[in-house]
Design a protein around this nucleic acid. Sequence first.
DNA 1: CCCTGTCAAGCAAGCAATTGCTTTGTTGTC
DNA 2: GACAACAAAGCAATTGCTTGCTTGACAGGG
Lengths: 206, 206
Amino acid sequence: MAVARTKTKARASTADEGNRRAELIRAAGKLFVEKGFDATTIRDIADAVGMRSGSPFYHFKSKQDMLKSVMIEGLQAALTAQQAAIAGVRGAEARFRALIKSHLRIILEDHTEFPVLLYEWRALTDDSRAEVIAVKDRYEAVWQSVLKDLVKAGLLKDDGRVTRLLLFGAFNWTVQWYRPDGEFTIDDIAERAVDLYLCPQAEGRR
Amino acid sequence: MAVARTKTKARASTADEGNRRAELIRAAGKLFVEKGFDATTIRDIADAVGMRSGSPFYHFKSKQDMLKSVMIEGLQAALTAQQAAIAGVRGAEARFRALIKSHLRIILEDHTEFPVLLYEWRALTDDSRAEVIAVKDRYEAVWQSVLKDLVKAGLLKDDGRVTRLLLFGAFNWTVQWYRPDGEFTIDDIAERAVDLYLCPQAEGRR
DNA sequence: CCCTGTCAAGCAAGCAATTGCTTTGTTGTC
DNA sequence: GACAACAAAGCAATTGCTTGCTTGACAGGG
């Protein structure tokens, strides 16, 4: 009874094992993106993994807790993918291109956990939001350093806060219109973006 | 009874008079942006204008109908603002700048009806969505023509679909981070955007 | 080898609150 | 007295979440 509940909390903090827990996070992330956080019921999520409506609360202490867990899960997957993408890549433009492709893949391919972060920011309570921001900042720090290098190389005019936010906006907004079966591949979009943002000031370089 | 309901529908279609109706739309728009469509209850909206929870249904036949009305209202306001912004403005770059400023003002200033369109797209039923798209296309058509002129003038490399969507994304995403009391004005952002997107290929032009 | 206790994981059932919406009644106005 | 514009009250369904109970796997002792 009370014992089981206590152990649940302990389990929830350590992100080990818990096979069904990961299953729940994936299902919840998918539904949150499709229907929105508020429009998704616990019963929807439970159905998606073949559980009864009360059972998810064995793994998460509330629906809010599920949302937070989905976002953090997505952010951590994005972080490792990001680091793998730029590992060993030299040159500002090449790193820029690698970052874009990695970001778009995380957003647009089957990892539906990250888009939840973009869609359901408002649904977070203040406590959960602080936790999520901490991880998010680490992700954006990598972008900042690459943008700085681009400016140094003369490929970008400015890397101030507004420019960064405009850049992120263009990428994050792709969630709204990209379709896997559409006419553009992820690499198409990435190439167009590089073309759009990098100014060939130093001619003969590219 | 049934009479009142019928007249309501008639009234809802003609967007004339109906003072409290416009009041409801404004209040609903504000709440939809702040809390999301699903998280906003009819009682929230009614409270905001000093009504009881059942009364809004005299003006709108359902909550969905309110959402659709808010969006269309926002779109039409955006359309007239857009046309006023580029009226008499010559030159591709000047028109581009004017469009951006107009768009950002619509999105970021007190007209909260338009951002609902960006936030709550999913919450629309298919029927409502078709209605909204019709108005939306007219708004985007103006952008397309300006972008084409920019390419013709050599100020933009490409005006294909992906480029357009990347552009819109950057602007629409500002809703997520812009704060009226922040360090940047709307004009600041517009200028940064012009700088970011327009490539000074034909030197000595600007 | 069997018995028994333990415990993670989930089921069955339901509660209390909230939800969108309806229905009937009231009021001011022309 | 007719009608637009609400109020008052409530209904039926849905919601997040809780509580007590079952099950299956495994450990250890005899």
